[in-house]
């Protein structure tokens, strides 16, 4: 008895210690950036570096807020919100069609969606850039919103479809007997019951649009159209590397996603992994 007990105890402690160690290691890089962002200039370039600043300062944050970064953040929010609206609008209708109707070509449609989601961005970077240039869409919110929506629509169709299928089709029928049209039943009865699905989708799309870099870098060049991630990259080249300010900008750029993550972790994880599991 005592032997099995102690074996179990050792196993438990080992599991606990390894997990705690890994958790700390995974957070360390972010913590290091946070620490750096709170250090005054002189202390940043001290060797050996200090994990706990001798002197705390918010100067780096003040400098970032006086730079162009806040404008880039606003741009990112505009594009993210636009992408959420367009993607959800397109995907909820497609999801409703797929969940409620049997129609010819349904499987082809689903296959095309899947294939276009799997075909990743870098291969279409060049043609997208050239086409956007021809259409005069470079340096506009519209082109980023369109491209981002295209990359997110397939995923969100699957996500929303799952939620729509959990709403019994008899409810649509009942609503239509009450005099609603097909779409009326969808908007007034089915959608309100699928709010969690819409919320999870919105989170996924937001995180994608907020974190995306390479399309934003390619499709915009004007300073006033820059998104947050691109702004971070240019922070390096424009001012030389000011690690203190850069660290503050990085921390500020993580905050919106982190808040969502802390508040809605369950939906977050569900949304970001569901695309991989539905077929």
């Amino acid at each position: 008895m005592t032997i099995t007990f102690s074996v179990r105890w050792v196993k438990y402690s080992l599991t606990f210690l390894v997990l705690a160690g890994v958790a700390i290691l995974m957070l360390t890089p972010v913590v290091w950036i946070l620490v750096t962002s709170l250090k005054p200039e002189a202390e940043i370039y001290r060797f050996p570096p200090q994990w706990i600043p001798l002197q705390f300062t918010l100067d780096n944050y003040k400098a970032v807020l006086q730079s162009s970064m806040p404008m880039y953040f606003v741009n990112s929010i505009v594009v993210a919100v636009g992408t959420i609206v367009l993607t959800l609008f397109i995907a909820m209708h497609a999801g409703y069609a797929v969940s409620r109707f049997q129609f010819r070509g349904k499987n082809v449609f689903l296959f095309l969606l899947m294939a276009s989601h799997m075909m990743p961005g870098v291969a279409s970077l060049v043609p997208t850039y050239l086409l956007a240039g021809k259409l005069g869409l470079l340096d506009t919110y519209a082109v980023l919103i369109l491209v981002y929506s295209m990359w997110q629509t397939p995923l969100v169709v699957w996500l929303i479809q799952g939620f729509l299928e959990s709403v019994p089709a008899t409810l649509d029928q009942a609503a239509m007997i009450d005099g609603y049209s097909r779409l009326g039943a969808f908007y007034r009865v089915v959608l309100p019951l699928s709010k969690p699905g819409l919320a999870a989708s919105a989170i996924v799309v937001f995180v994608y649009a907020w974190n995306e870099f390479i399309m934003a870098l390619t499709l915009t060049s004007a300073d006033n159209m820059r998104l947050a991630q691109v702004g971070l990259k240019y922070y390096i080249s424009q001012y030389g590397i000011q690690w203190g300010e850069l660290a503050a900008a990085v921390i500020l750029s993580i905050v919106p996603v982190l808040i969502l993550f802390v508040l809605l972790q369950r939906w977050f994880v569900y949304g970001l992994t569901s695309g991989a599991l539905k077929g």
Binding site: V30, N211, I254, V257, L258
Partner: peptide
């Protein structure tokens, strides 16, 4: 949750 944090930061970050 701690292990998930690096997953939500962007590639640039």
């Amino acid at each position: 949750a701690s292990i998930l944090v690096p997953w939500i930061v962007s590639q640039v970050v």
